[in-house]
Amino acid sequence: MKQSMIINGKAHEITVDGDMPLLWFLRDNLEFTGTKFGCGSGLCGACTVHVDGQAIRSCITPVSTLVDKKITTIEGLSEKGDHPLQKAWLNNNVPQCGYCQAGQIMNAASLLAVNAAPTEAEIDTAMQGNICRCGTYQRIKKAIVEAADTLSKEV
């Protein structure tokens, strides 16, 4: 029987071996290249996507565990690229090389979904698994605070 997962609102049949991590199914088979390969071991966070709204490391999550799950990648975080985090990222000119930023944004979005007004310490704890080698951490923190502020005004 055919198995599938929902990626950014659309069903995709799982056409690869069940032990293939979601990252490679996304990148090599479906050509959703916004999700990045950084370490392959869940150590850097570049590959972060959402499964049923929660941030996971797609490089260590086999597709067999994701049957019928709802996956959101950076390409599907918002329809027009206008998620408060995306706007705050632009407003603070966060990215340098930008390679880790999809993972940073997806991880931050997962944080804000459960904690709309995180303290600085809570941001640190939530974001410590996401490495940025260019060193944009200061702006990442600022952008998360700004996005949280925007969200609180929307409610």
Partner: peptide
């Protein structure tokens, strides 16, 4: 602002 930031934040 950097010319390519908008593409970065949507994974493009």
């Amino acid at each position: 602002p950097r010319h390519d930031q908008a593409a970065v934040v949507v994974g493009k």
